[in-house]
Simulated scan of single mutants.
Amino acid sequence: MTRRYCLLLVCLALGLPSAAALAAPTPVGYWLVQEGTSVVQIEESGGKLGGRIVWLKEPNYPAGSKQGPAGQPKVDAHNPDAAKRDRKLLGLPIVWGLSPPDAKGVCDGGQVYDPRNGKTYSGTITMAGKDRLELRGYIMVSLIGRSSTWTRVDPGKYGLKP
Rank of each mutant, 00 (worst) to 15 (best):
P17G: 01
P17C: 10
A19P: 04
A21Q: 14
L22C: 14
A23L: 14
A23M: 14
A24H: 11
P25D: 09
T26D: 10
T26C: 09
T26H: 07
V28G: 04
Q34C: 06
E35Q: 13
T37L: 15
S38T: 10
V39Q: 12
V39C: 08
V40W: 05
Q41E: 15
Q41P: 00
I42P: 01
I42V: 15
E43M: 11
E44Q: 12
G46M: 08
G47F: 01
G47E: 02
L49G: 02
R52G: 05
R52C: 03
V54L: 06
V54R: 02
W55C: 03
K57M: 02
E58I: 05
N60G: 05
Y61V: 01
Y61F: 14
Y61I: 02
P62H: 14
A63S: 07
G64T: 08
G64R: 11
S65E: 03
S65Q: 05
S65F: 07
S65P: 05
K66H: 09
G71N: 06
G71K: 02
Q72N: 10
K74Q: 14
K74G: 00
P80D: 10
P80F: 06
D81Y: 00
D81M: 02
A83H: 07
R85K: 12
R85V: 02
R85G: 04
D86A: 13
D86E: 11
R87H: 08
R87P: 00
L89S: 00
L89E: 06
G91S: 12
G91N: 11
L92F: 10
I94N: 03
W96C: 08
G97E: 09
L98T: 11
S99G: 02
P101A: 11
P101M: 07
K104D: 11
K104T: 05
K104H: 09
V106M: 12
C107A: 08
C107S: 15
G109I: 11
G109M: 07
G110Y: 10
Q111S: 14
V112W: 00
D114H: 13
D114C: 02
P115W: 12
P115T: 08
N117K: 04
K119C: 02
T120I: 12
T120R: 11
Y121F: 13
S122C: 12
S122I: 00
G123Q: 02
I125T: 01
I125G: 05
I125M: 09
T126F: 05
T126N: 09
M127S: 08
M127H: 06
G129F: 00
K130F: 13
L133C: 10
L133I: 11
E134I: 15
E134L: 12
R136C: 07
G137F: 01
Y138P: 00
I139Y: 12
I139W: 10
M140D: 09
S142K: 15
G145A: 05
G145R: 01
